[in-house]
Amino acid sequence: MLTIYGVYRSRASRNYWMAGELGIPFRSVPVVQARRLIDPLSETAPINTQSPAYLAINPRGMIPAIEDNGLVLAESLANNLYLARKHGGPLAAANAAEEAEILDWTLWAATEIEPHAVKIVLAYDAEPNGPARGRAIVDAAAQALDTRFGMLERRLSQHAYIVGDRFTVADLNLAEVFRYAQSQTDLFDRHPGIKAWIERCQARAAFREMMTVREAEPA
């Protein structure tokens, strides 16, 4: 059985969503980010990214990680690519060309979108009522994303989904990266194709189920 290590309020959300889309059974081990704890090495601390028990599974000390029949992987987007390849179906590539496109767009999101988008979500994590001290960071990140959003906007002007004109793991991976920037409504309003696309992705039952669990977790 697949084991997913990580709380839902982390990048593990991507893997929980993927498992839901595939309809596969999984075991959840709620590993917490060490930065959220006063003393992550305390005997009473929950298992976290500094716990020796977790570091034995993922020495990188990050979440998520997955374990599947002895195979351990520790990058959330790669985890989803593996699960799609293993289980097949409409979320997976239908041929080598689609597989290349899925990988291409996933790597683009990881390198061009997430470094900026994560600055936005971290600013809001630090100031939940809206960034004041971090406003300049958010504005700079949104400005950097504007041109990059245009690249996907052009793709979506001709296609409802990113690869193969159907919902695939590429859409799931990118939707989870783009979600980090969704607080910037003006950015999405300027790119209506992206706004409509992410709404389609987030209307899926597996996403809503994942978010229900995520929102029930402590912030």
Rank of each mutant, 00 (worst) to 15 (best):
H191D: 14
P64K: 00
D39W: 06
R135D: 10
D165Q: 15
A65Q: 00
A34P: 03
A160F: 07
Y5K: 02
R133K: 12
A12P: 00
I66M: 00
G6C: 00
P64N: 01
V29M: 03
R35G: 04
F207M: 15
R27I: 06
N58S: 06
K86W: 03
T147M: 04
G88C: 05
Y82L: 11
I137C: 07
P25R: 04
T106E: 01
N15M: 00
I113T: 06
L73G: 00
L22V: 11
P128Q: 07
L83I: 07
P25D: 06
D186R: 14
Y82N: 12
R27F: 03
V31Q: 02
R155N: 03
A123E: 08
A126V: 04
N95L: 09
Q33V: 08
A219S: 15
M1W: 03
D39K: 05
D189A: 15
K195T: 14
G61I: 04
L77I: 08
E43Q: 13
A142S: 09
L81I: 05
E101K: 07
A100V: 14
E215D: 15
L187K: 06
A126G: 05
D125M: 12
L152D: 02
P59C: 07
T212K: 15
P218R: 15
A136H: 11
L77G: 04
G130E: 10
A117I: 06
L172D: 01
P64R: 00
A96P: 02
R179Y: 09
N80S: 14
A100M: 13
H191L: 10
T3H: 00
R155Y: 05
V213R: 13
N69W: 09
A216K: 10
L83M: 09
D139Q: 12
I198S: 05
A196R: 15
S10R: 03
R214S: 13
D186T: 14
R155T: 14
A93K: 12
L2G: 01
E112T: 10
Y82Q: 09
V163W: 11
Q184K: 13
A170N: 10
T44Y: 05
N48I: 02
Q202I: 08
E99W: 13
L122F: 11
S157A: 15
F207R: 09
F207Q: 14
K119E: 12
D39E: 08
I66L: 00
A93I: 13
G6Y: 01
A160S: 14
R166M: 09
D104F: 14
R190D: 13
M210K: 00
R154D: 08
L174F: 04
A132M: 05
L37Q: 10
T3R: 01
S13M: 09
F207P: 07
T111W: 05
R190F: 12
P64T: 00
N95C: 12
K86D: 08
S10Q: 07
Y180T: 06
A19R: 00
S28Y: 02
E153K: 02
E127F: 09
M211K: 07
D189M: 11
V29A: 01
A96M: 08
V163N: 01
A74P: 07
D139F: 03
R154C: 06
R200M: 12
E209N: 15
P59N: 11
R154S: 15
E209V: 15
A196C: 13
V213A: 14
D146Y: 04
L145M: 08
I38R: 13
D139I: 02
A219M: 10
V118N: 04
E21F: 11
Y161E: 05
E112A: 13
H87L: 02
K195R: 15
G89S: 11
A92V: 07
